[in-house]
Nucleic acid binder design. Structure first.
Lengths: 195, 195
DNA sequence: GCGGTTATTGACCGTTCGGTCCACAATAAG
DNA sequence: CTTATTGTGGACCGAACGGTCAATAACCGC
């Protein structure tokens, strides 16, 4: 019984996310957000609140998509260990120059923004659990040594993956990045446990 | 034959660096820089140029110190492999909540600032070489398998280290961080090579 | 002490920032 | 068609931004 919205909320969140991803939070102005979304200030504020809330919405939608995609990838793989390897090597296929939005945001705002820090912490924990489940499956499938704590190995894998993504950000050439990812995958996902 | 400076350039760079480290580049205003340095705008601009140049100076002085400290640590260690292990576990001892200034800057500005990106690339390469030398020494000392390419292993170690630092940023508790760092060290620095 | 030179300070500039507000447009219900 | 309700767009705001500049202060060689 009133005027309907002329935009799709999800679509706006996506374009806005791209902007924050490219430029970071502080370096993105409201004018930038208006330009990429095609909305006026009034609409933006009425729909999402202020810049900070809009950013958090975009960030949350990002991590939700990442988690959904990760769960799907890990679940669909015939062998869990291959999915884990793919996880470590994924940063190579994707153009990784922009890095991970969550990681970028944590680096930029982690010191000053408790909400972002809290979200980062939660996201990291969830990701670890998802990877941990996959590690456990790989153990059941006999591809990883059974004695290792799945969550512990999951954390090592996730840390290594973040390191690879960051390495890609610095402009390391793709061949070197590939070799490093493979090397880490070999050492973290070998069938025998460490002495 | 003129008025001498009332401040020490290095000291100003240090305090300014702390500010950029805490708040990031964009979120640090000239007023912040004046406050922490105790200098007026004019002095700041006369001595260092604009905000961006001052930032680059502070960033360069940071990486120089890091490299000097890293070289010293790796050179002074009786056994190279212990120094490498220490490198991976170092993020735990240091309060790592702020992360690494170079990594933070790369994440915030890597997309938009070619100078920062270039500096990040160079820094990463140099760090890899320093670690690579230490890996080679560990091989000569019989603590690492001889067949491995030192530079390749160095990149894996550095990526893992960056991942650990980032993990610390997200607020993971110190015990978990310790365990993860040890786990990665065990797997990357074991005496036998991967199958 | 004097003159030349550089450092310091803070007033000042135009611009851009995030955010508010209001006149107007578009819809649905009656 | 009228009316109530919500969405839209842009004018507008005060504050803060990065940066400039001129007046003043402090020093060195002479």
């Amino acid at each position: 019984m009133a005027r309907p919205r002329a935009f799709d909320e999800k679509q706006v969140l996506n374009t806005v996310r791209e902007q924050f991803w490219d430029a970071g939070y502080a370096a993105t102005s409201l004018e930038d957000l208006m330009r990429v979304s095609g909305l006026g200030k009034g609409s933006l504020y009425a729909a999402f609140g202020d810049k900070h809330q809009l950013f958090l919405r975009a960030l949350r939608s990002y991590t939700e998509e990442i988690h959904a995609s990760l769960r799907r990838t890990l679940a669909e793989a015939p062998r869990a260990v291959d999915a884990l390897r793919e996880l470590l090597e994924a940063p190579i296929h994707a153009r990784v120059r922009r890095g991970c939005l969550m990681a970028n945001s944590t680096c930029e705002l982690g010191n000053a923004d408790p909400e972002v820090l809290d979200h980062a912490h939660r996201t990291y924990e969830t990701t670890t659990e998802v990877i941990g489940d996959c590690v456990a499956r790989a153990q059941r499938e006999g591809d990883l040594p059974a004695g290792v704590d799945p969550m512990a190995l999951a954390r090592a894998i996730l840390a290594a993956q973040q390191g690879i993504v960051f390495m890609g950000r610095t402009g390391v050439d793709s061949a070197t990045l590939t070799a490093t990812a493979r090397s880490l995958a070999d050492q973290l996902l070998s069938a025998r446990s460490v002495d």
